[in-house]
């Protein structure tokens, strides 16, 4: 299952666990008005990897009731199941094992283990413990975590395939609150670092990419915008612009001194 990797055609692919993706924007599928809007916004975002939650199915619903899988065909997207809503390592492992069965053995998983219902801040102790179990069980773990570089290092050392620090609280739209920590994490990492959580608008995504993030994962910033489809396009462009700026290498900042852009000679006198 999942969209085939397109290694050869991509100039600057995002590579996660050996598979190449053309888009560096990963999107969640929650909080949309309906499946039509989900589909349209996610298509506009250009994202190839979409996160999904695993929940008890509605028993007794119509057999032909629309589902997320109709809106986002599994042949067209790489599904990244999450353990959202889990507060213990055991629950997260159980949820992601069910997800793997649901997705025909697909090993990619977004691990998140929460520590507080108000802040949705990750419980890193439980996260580390779940990551060890999942990796030993053959999962390829993209891990949501705090922006602590020591924890990020530990998660990479135990075998996570991507480190996903928060930029600010999940669903808060507060933007990149600690670019310094993100830089510390990026500079030491040998696996992709993706900002997961906190992006509110396009400039936040661009800043994350300019810092050197390999990608950005977002949901609420698109789904809860006044016009989600338009914001999805904005995020696509912002991630691309930020990536280009990072690769281009920005000019150094000159504090307290201007430098004219026009020649200083040949002025009329």
């Amino acid at each position: 299952m999942n969209a085939p990797a397109r290694h050869s055609a991509l100039a600057d692919p995002l590579v996660i666990a050996g598979r190449a993706y053309g888009s560096r924007l990963l999107v969640g599928t929650g909080k949309y008005r309906d499946f039509a809007q989900t589909r349209e916004a996610i298509s506009a975002s250009g994202a190839e990897i979409v996160t999904v939650a695993i929940r008890r199915t509605n028993i007794g619903q119509e057999a032909d009731a629309p589902s997320l899988l109709d809106a986002l065909p599994i042949a067209e997207y790489t599904y990244l199941p999450n353990s959202a809503g889990c507060y213990t390592a055991a629950d997260a492992v159980r949820t992601l094992r069910l997800a793997r069965e649901l997705l025909d053995g697909h090993p990619l998983a977004k691990l998140e283990v929460l520590g507080n219902a108000n802040t949705l801040y990750p419980n890193v102790r439980e996260t580390l413990s779940a990551a060890e179990v999942l990796i030993a069980d053959g999962f390829e773990v993209l891990v949501y975590t705090s922006d602590d570089p020591i924890i990020a290092r530990e998660l990479e050392d135990i075998g996570c395939v991507a480190i996903m620090p928060l930029a600010s609280l999940i669903g808060s739209g507060m933007g990149i609150l600690n670019p310094w920590n993100l830089r510390l994490i990026i500079e030491q990492a040998n696996v992709p670092v993706l900002v997961d959580a906190g992006v509110g608008t396009a400039s936040d995504a661009a800043i994350a990419m300019e810092l050197g993030c390999a990608g950005v994962l977002m949901n609420t910033a698109i789904a809860q915008a006044q016009d989600p489809v338009r914001m999805a396009r904005a995020m696509k462009l912002a991630v691309e612009a930020g990536r280009e700026a990072f690769l281009a290498g920005r000019m150094p900042k000159k504090l307290y001194s201007a430098s004219p852009s026009s020649p200083v000679s040949g002025l009329i006198s």
Binding site: K31, A53, R56, L68, A84, L98
Partner: peptide, 24 residues
């Protein structure tokens, strides 16, 4: 899935049935 047709249920069994839904 491959074992659904050979798995017999008994009184008192507990089933959890999950699906993929929208989430971030």
């Amino acid at each position: 899935k491959s074992r659904y047709s050979v798995t017999h249920l008994r009184n008192g069994d507990k089933l959890e049935v999950v699906a993929a839904i929208g989430g971030g």
